[in-house]
Structure formats: C-alpha cells, structure tokens
Design a binder for these strands. Structure first.
Lengths: 188, 188
DNA sequence: TCCAAGGTTTACTGATCGGTACATGTTGGA
DNA sequence: TCCAACATGTACCGATCAGTAAACCTTGGA
C-alpha cells in the first residue's frame, strides 16, 4: 500500500479509460492491465467511481500543467498567449493516441449534473475558463469574461471537431477565429 | 413486424440512449421500456449496434429537420441565417431534457474511427458543415469553407459548454462571436 | 375445420459486470 | 525464532450483459 503504487494504478487506469471509455472498461480489465489483484485494487479504491475520479484528477493536473506551460513557451504577452493556445491545441491533436478531451467524454458518459464525475469534469472546464479570463483581462479586453468564453467555445469546438471530422483543420481555423475575436475585443 | 412497430422501437430507444448513454443502456432495459419481448426486439434488429445506428439515423433526421427549419423561420438572408442558427441553438439548450449532442456522445463512446457508429456520427457533423458552407457561400464570404468551419467550431463548443458549465451563456457568446467572424469574412 | 406460416413469449446461454469473503504470503519487531 | 499486522491472491457472489432455442399463440387461406 505504498503511495507510489496507488499512483501507478491511477496512471494506468487513466490510459485505459482515455483509450476505451469509462463504461466500456471493466475493473477486471484494469486488474489484468496493471497486474495487481482485484482485492488490492479495491484496497486502494473503494469503488470504480473513486478510481475514475482519481484518474480525472490526474488528467486535470497533467493536462493543465502541459497546456499552460506550453502556452507560456510559445508566447510572451497575454494577448499572444490567448492565440498561441490554439498552436498548443494543434500539437495535441497531432499526438499519437489523441482521443479528444477526457472531460467532455466524462460529461457525456455521466450526464447527471449532480454526479460527482460530471461535477469534476465541469470543474476542469471552469478552471480553463478562469485561466482564459485572466489572460483576456491582462490582455486589456473590454469584456474579458465574454472574450474568454468565446475562446473557450472555440477550444471545445476544435477538440470535438478534431475527433469527428478530418476535413476542416480545427486548430488552424480556431486560431484564425480567435485572432479576429481578440482584435475586436481590444478595439472596443 | 409491421414497419411502424419498428419505428416505434427506434423512437423509444433513441430517447433512452440519449438520456442514459449507449453502453449504460442494456437491451433488457429497452425491452422493459418498449414493452416488447426480447426475441421480437432481435427480430427487428440483429444486434444492439444495429439498433444504435437506427437511432442515430432518426436523430440525424429529426435534428437537422428541426434545426434547418427553425433557422429559416428566424431569418431570411444567408448571412442572417448563419447568425440565427445560434438563436436556434439557444432554444435547444433551454429545452427540458437537453443532454447535449447525441453524435458527440456517440463519438465519445465509440472512439475507433473505423467503427460504424463513429463513422455515422462524423457523417452528421459533415452534413452540418456542408450546410454552413452553403450558407457562407451564399452570404458572400471571401472564404466560405473557412467561415463555415469557424461557425461549426462555435456551435460544437457551445453545445459542449452548455452541458458542462452553467456560468458563461454559450449560445449568446457564440452568437456574438459569429457576428464578428461573419463581418470579418464579408469585408475581405 | 384444419393446417401452415410467422410473430411473440418464456426461459435460458456463457460471458462479464462491480464487488467481497477468506485463505495465503510477506514483513518488521521482540 | 516466533508472532502479529498487513498486503496480496484465489475463488467466488448475485446481477446484468448481449444474444438465442424452442414452445406458444394468432391469423389467413383452403
């Protein structure tokens, strides 16, 4: 029951859930994949739901760490960073094993708005919206909340579209749209 | 085995799948909900997958019929119709039992790009993109495909955000963004 | 009136679901 | 060396999964 063992289980579960989905992934499969016994698994996580929540927490940490860091690497000013976020997205879309946003999928599989998994997925999006709002404010947008929301819409739309449509380069078009929206928000 | 009986089964299955998800809905549940026996169900549909595909076909028909008709009711010119599509979306979001886009959810639960269900979900989005492209072209946009893609991104993003976040009015912000993007596309 | 055809039902299949009781290591302290 | 504490594995639970075999109506035609 050393803590790093638990982390390793969460890491592996995250991979499988991301690849195959939540309902489609049984605990037996995770037991086989991790090599641990079922009893050990249930010593670390009282229920499957608890394991999913742990996996989502790890995913939130991993994704936001990578996304924010990459944006800061790509651009210096808040305005440029808002735009550069779509370059980061584009890089993500090109990765092997890209399967869309785990939190959109979590919200889709657990639709009850009061369900802990749905709530946690929503929290991830809220944190991203907060981040965009901060960038928009520091960029000097006339209505930072509105611009941030619009940027978020483009980001979520780009992810969904990247999953479903091959034509229409979503990251590129989202970036072009963001430029126009940012410019308009700075003028007023 | 009269044809309207089959349609009735598809209609009911569509409701349940939309409400509870695909993997989370068992055939036994559908059998109880529809009142038909399991054998009869499997006389109409050889597999669960076939039933899901039939439900998605009906959903595509219902949604696109409603969406296009509503847009035509709300606006006359192609340019206005591009913008009015977000008013239609907003009405959809306010409906009781709104649970997001069935095709996004289908793509999320069946992630393999070659899976028939994933393919059919993608086809729905492609048809919508085609529709937006037509509107953009008739509106006189300088790059109709690009504008249509951007409108689609806003639409998909608005749906996802409407499901997950309560703050930030997605239909309203998407409409505002679309106005800016349309104006920019008409100027050049 | 009888029969054939086809839709419907009951009852079931093996596999898998999430989860657990209980036996079996394994390890640190005395 | 022995024991207590705890982690692990085996084997299983009832429920549910997608799907099916075979008995049971029901109905139209002769």
């Amino acid at each position: 029951m050393r803590p790093n063992k638990r982390d390793e289980l969460v890491r592996k579960a995250l991979q499988v859930f991301y690849q195959d989905g939540f309902h489609a992934t049984g605990m037996d499969k995770l037991v086989v994949e991790t090599g641990v016994s079922k009893t050990s698994m249930y010593k670390h996580f009282r229920t499957k739901e608890e394991l999913i929540l742990a996996a989502l927490r790890l995913r939130d940490e991993n994704f936001r760490n990578w996304f924010l860091r990459r944006i800061e690497e790509l651009a210096d000013t808040p305005a440029d960073q808002l735009i550069a976020s779509f370059d980061a997205l584009g890089e993500w879309f090109e990765e092997d094993g890209f399967r869309g946003c785990m939190f959109i999928k979590a919200g889709a599989e657990f639709q009850d708005k009061t369900h802990p998994i749905h709530v946690q997925a929503a929290e991830h999006k809220r944190l991203l919206l907060e981040y965009f709002t901060d960038l928009a404010r520091r960029a000097g947008a006339s209505a930072p909340e509105a611009l941030a929301c619009q940027i978020l819409l483009l980001k979520e739309g780009a992810i969904v579209t990247a999953v479903l449509i091959k034509s229409c380069d979503p990251a590129h078009e989202a970036k072009a749209a963001a430029k126009v929206l940012l410019e308009a928000a700075l003028l007023n």
